[in-house]
């Protein structure tokens, strides 16, 4: 009993807690997380500033005097053709990108979970029907549909256009997640703890919310993160093609598109370098987070050593063991050879 008393305040590590620990120990993923948070913070502060000061994105007053100025203390990232500050434009573009990505990911995750969970849980005809729908949706040609929808809604207001973009991205990107969730739910349904909930008389609602969803949520987070990165890239691609929010509101794809003549490329590199870096950094950081989450969710992956020193020590230990083993094998081999010669 004395020993038990001591254990009464033992630290309980929940599976979620364990995942967070694993993620924290993964320095690459943490680097991604910090990069992501930095970008988001800058973008949020910047767009609040733009909103509060009523910054005019269509300000053409400096058109002659400030055309294509290189980065300076006044214009941190230089100016564009109309003398507008590139720094503000990159930040506003980031805000659009993040908004579209967040909202469309939320939309696609919601649809994906719903369809996948229903399909996996109820099975049979429902599953068959929903999976065929999923297949149809996943075989829609993305660009053709995006083109058509953008052309149809080309005259609407900018904010509405943003939501149409969110809708296009969200409605076309849920299929992968739905399949993953369906597979997970199908395999969970065969587990005995789900049979146990039936035997215990747990209601269907609680079966799904307490037993199924907590067990798939990790996969949802991983998939959502990776989908988020994809959504940013798709938004950039669509706006590059001019299918997103138009001038004077900047988008990263739009900024890149405007810089895509050889004159600008060669003479005014700040026009494309900065939006490019921003896009690259954001997507990379989200992907790093996604990779880290994937490792953290995998119960088989072990916690990586936090410090570089610790990792090196571990590697050295492993090398040492390996070398010893090799040596031993060699000796045994020699011995065996020796015996053979003797006999």
């Amino acid at each position: 009993m004395v020993a038990n008393k001591n254990k009464e305040h033992e630290k309980i590590i929940s599976p979620t807690r364990l995942m967070i620990q694993k993620f924290k120990a993964n320095s690459l993923a943490m680097f991604g997380l910090w990069t992501f948070l930095t970008i988001v913070t800058i973008v949020v502060i910047g767009s609040v500033y733009v909103n509060v000061t009523n910054y005019d994105l269509a300000d053409l007053s400096r058109i002659g005097t400030h055309k294509y100025l290189p980065p300076s203390s006044e214009n941190w990232l230089g100016t564009d053709r109309y003398g507008r500050d590139q720094f503000i434009r990159v930040i506003v573009g980031g805000a659009i990108s993040l908004q579209v990505a967040f909202l469309s990911t939320i939309l696609s995750v919601t649809i994906g979970i719903t369809i996948g969970a229903i399909s996996g849980y109820f099975g049979g005809k429902v599953d068959n029907f929903l999976m065929r729908v999923t297949e149809i949706v996943s075989s829609f040609p993305f660009l053709a549909l995006a083109f058509t929808l953008s052309v149809i809604f080309s005259d609407v207001e900018q904010t509405t256009k943003l939501f149409i973009l969110v809708f296009i991205l969200g409605i076309l990107r849920w299929t992968g997640l739905a399949r993953i969730i369906r597979g997970q739910v199908l395999s969970l349904r065969e587990q005995e703890f789900i049979t146990a909930t039936k035997a215990l008389g747990i209601s269907t609602k609680n079966q799904i919310t307490r037993h199924l969803i907590p067990n798939v949520v990790a996969y949802v987070i991983v998939s959502a993160t990776i989908g988020f990165a994809g959504a940013i890239l798709s938004e950039a691609a669509l706006s590059y093609l001019g299918l997103s929010v138009n001038e004077p509101v900047p988008t990263w794809g739009g900024l890149l598109q405007r810089a895509s003549t050889s004159t600008i490329m060669r003479n005014f590199p700040w026009m494309w370098v900065f939006p490019g870096i921003a896009l690259f950094a954001l997507i990379m950081s989200v992907n790093l987070i996604g990779e880290g989450l994937r490792d953290a969710v995998d119960p088989k992956s072990e916690i990586m050593s936090k410090s570089r020193k610790g990792r090196r020590r571990k590697r050295e230990e492993r090398d040492k063991i390996f070398a010893e083993k090799e040596l031993r094998d060699k000796r045994i081999g020699e011995k065996a050879a020796g015996i053979e010669v003797k006999s």
Binding site: I12, P15, E192, F193, T195, A196, A199, H211, P214, N215
Partner: peptide
């Protein structure tokens, strides 16, 4: 009530 064969799959890993 029922007691299951497999003590590993019969308990929800995410509940205490």
């Amino acid at each position: 009530q029922i007691i299951f064969q497999d003590p590993y799959s019969s308990l929800n890993p995410r509940m205490t």
